[in-house]
Design a binder for these strands. Structure first.
Lengths: 250, 250
DNA sequence: CGAACAATTGAACCGATTCAAGATGCGTGG
DNA sequence: CCACGCATCTTGAATCGGTTCAATTGTTCG
């Protein structure tokens, strides 16, 4: 049993990110077949359409294939709170494991394609495939790390810059450009997520553009000075390499 | 395989909380023995002493037996950020699963007793004990739900009141009183965690005391009007029952 | 093309921080 | 046991960052 961790050399923690396919590396072809067997076919969702609703029983987890998905909770006052955005290659819905129902709703931003996986079958499979189990735990461990900027004590600019860096890093991890990427979600949603007014987002982006740190062409962000961006985020280290993995945390 | 979820009727999601012992229900005596076998003996930590440091390799997860433990990250500017507090019966250290090292440090607030569990052995055991696997996933799923008040858009009073309600709920879940509990961590740490100034904590607590909502006697909080507290938190529902489980989320 | 919505920009306002000072509590040593 | 010193907590007044409100411009789509 102890060896089940060490013998599978194919799996390292950086593999946890799951590639652009719905699911992970480190499986032999037989295991991979079993896995593909339980993945449902991809579904398309148009802008603002709901993938699952808060309160529904937890059955499936989802992987984004294209587009962006946001998760939202509505509080007792009817106010929505956007908890996070999920980019292509990322998994969402795992927060439903606990009370065995989704506590947030997931909504497609722009049009998105997602594929779903029955969680019971996935977790049963994980019990027989150690590397799959570890990857599941890895993904969840990652999501346990709230963006540190959520913990207050940061200026609006730091929060926004950090948000941009996070997107950049996550796109890069999935094989996309870290310096040219889509900002598909509306300002209003970014503002909601970061806990500030849409007007503030506007003003700050304007300032970043004026200062030649970034450029924005329609929905595309072009990072012109990533070091400056890191500096503005409040982490002066030339952190562009290894810290990529910890951007969610620090 | 499919039946491994349904046959173990002893396990329901509410069991995920782990009792006051280090580990969970739903195991037969043989499984329980295997589990106890891998739990290390309890260790004591004095006030402000470190249990593990950010950057150390991830080896163990920990359960609080008494006292309070906080997890902290230090950013590149040398500023500390308190990510969370762990009460008796709760598990911490699981955030280290991902990059296979701890990204936060854990520090005892006041004096605490904790026991540790080697994670490799725990996760190997989980692979053979489905209910243990599910509980692991459950605990992590719970921690994936950041306190919604962290997502900005809340007044300082709402954040603080929500924090108090969260403590109350978590103490109750572990069999302690929901209306009389210890506030062991200093104001400064609460302020840091909630992203506000210590002075603000002071003023708000004073107001809550003046308004007869709570009382504070040295380190003990006495909740005098829990309905009012929920109301102040911004969730007017008489939510004292089932929402207990979702307090982290909403 | 025009309507509806999203984004931008300016000016007044407000909540929370900051700075400064005083109060309370607590362990140590005389 | 009290006196001292240090740390935590409390309270007040000035300041500032970000919000709110309002008006304008830009963009998307039927």
């Amino acid at each position: 049993m102890e060896t089940s961790f060490t013998k599978n050399k194919k799996l390292s923690c950086s593999d946890c990110s799951l590639g652009n396919l719905c699911l992970p590396f480190g499986l032999n072809s037989d295991e991979m077949e079993q896995l593909e067997d339980i993945i449902d076919s991809a579904q398309s969702f148009s802008n603002k359409s709901t993938i699952y609703r808060s309160g529904e029983p937890f059955k499936k987890v989802y992987a984004v294939k294209s587009g962006v998905v946001e998760t939202v909770v509505t509080d007792a006052n009817g106010e929505d709170h956007i908890l996070g955005f999920y980019l292509p290659g990322e998994i969402f819905g795992l927060d439903g494991v606990h009370p065995n129902q989704y506590l947030s709703s997931s909504i497609s931003v722009a049009s998105s394609v997602v594929c779903s996986i029955d969680f019971k079958r996935l977790s049963n499979l994980a019990a027989t495939v150690p590397s799959l189990q570890q990857q599941l735990l890895c993904i969840m461990s990652k999501e346990m790390k709230p963006s540190i900027t959520a913990h207050g004590e940061f200026t609006a600019e730091q929060k926004l810059v950090h948000f941009l860096l996070q997107l950049s890093t996550r796109y890069r991890q999935r094989g996309y450009s870290a310096t040219r990427f889509q900002l598909l979600m509306p300002r209003k949603d970014i503002a909601n997520h970061l806990g500030m007014a849409p007007e503030t987002i506007s003003r700050l982006l304007r300032r970043l553009i004026n200062d030649q740190v970034i450029d924005i062409q329609s929905t595309e962000v072009i990072v012109k000075d990533i070091d400056k961006l890191w500096q503005l985020a409040g982490f002066q280290s030339s952190a562009s390499d290894h810290s990529a993995d910890t951007v969610n945390f620090i």
